[in-house]
């Protein structure tokens, strides 16, 4: 009993803060999503109408598909690349390893609205270092009107921004591997691949679960950076879910925005839940 009280008292400040900034607003969004809202005093109960309208609209379905595709591309690039970089970094001299980690942490401290500005300046064909190089090589790069180029720019920018998180967390798991394990593997004459498969990968798995989730959610709901690059264009090719949601909020369509927000939240929670189920089953423990 005394233990339970102490446990509760220690958690109380955190739970109060989270209740105020997370649980209350989430309940409010849930409530708005069943209303047609003209102003905060004039809200009419309309049940599931918003949901029906949104789920059956092409606009929602195509932006959902774009967001899922974007997250898929991001994960397929950043997770293997981040692991590969971490595997190299942990084998470098400690001074160089620290230098590498500091390097990849840099983009994490750049304000999010400045990241697209920096990249647009970089690929500017007149003044940008990369833009002039691309033009010098005679390539036609046109992120404004060619959908594939807009996607490429956003993917490269996102990789620049977030690769550090993957590398840092992967390094954390790798540096926890005791040196005798490597020595034993060397004595057994294990190949590089076998060391990765049987020593490094199992250690990485635990930490990677979280990286995968964080990268999935953050890329799935990318807003600030993607909007500033091309405002969802060309021709809505980069209008992701959250950009769609932003449009509704800007149009003061609160009920519809709330329903969209709940649907996004549902996708996120479903993925997180499924992911936790799969990973805990594999480890054979709760």
């Amino acid at each position: 009993m005394r233990q339970a009280l102490t446990f509760g008292a220690l958690l109380l400040p955190a739970l109060v803060v989270m209740g105020f900034v997370a649980v209350l607003p989430l309940l409010a969004v849930f409530n708005y999503s069943f209303h047609d809202i003209f102003s905060l005093d004039q809200a009419y109960w309309i049940g599931l109408e918003w949901y029906q309208e949104i789920v059956t609209s092409d606009r929602f379905l195509s932006s959902l598909a774009r967001s899922l595709l974007f997250s898929g591309v991001i994960l397929a690039i950043q997770i293997p690349l981040g692991i590969a970089l971490a595997l190299v970094l942990v084998r470098l001299h400690p001074v160089l390893r620290t230098f590498g980690l500091m390097l990849v942490a840099l983009p994490l401290v750049v304000p999010w609205n400045m990241i697209p500005m920096i990249w647009l300046a970089l690929v500017n064909p007149d003044t940008g270092l990369a833009g002039r190089a691309i033009e010098g090589m005679g390539w036609a790069f046109d992120y404004k009107f060619t959908a594939l180029h807009t996607w490429a720019l956003i993917v490269v920018m996102d990789t620049w921004h977030w690769i550090g998180l993957v590398v840092i967390l992967a390094c954390a798991s790798l540096s926890a591997i005791p040196a005798p394990l490597y020595r034993a593997a060397a004595i057994d004459g294990a190949s590089r691949l076998a060391v990765f498969r049987h020593i490094e990968l199992p250690r990485l798995a635990g930490g990677l679960a979280i990286v995968l989730l964080l990268r999935f959610v953050d890329s799935f709901m990318i807003y600030t950076e993607a909007f500033a690059i091309n405002a969802g264009g060309p021709n809505a090719a980069t209008t992701f879910l959250s950009l769609d949601l932003g449009e509704d909020i800007k149009a003061y369509s609160y009920g519809s925005a709330a329903a969209r927000a709940m649907l996004s939240f549902l996708v996120v929670v479903t993925v997180v839940w499924a992911f936790v189920k799969i990973t805990t089953r594999d480890r054979g423990q709760a």
Binding site: L24, M221, Y223
Partner: peptide, 11 residues
């Protein structure tokens, strides 16, 4: 993991 845009309005 809750996207900020989701909660911006009620907050």
């Amino acid at each position: 993991m809750t996207p900020p845009v989701v909660l911006s309005l009620p907050i």
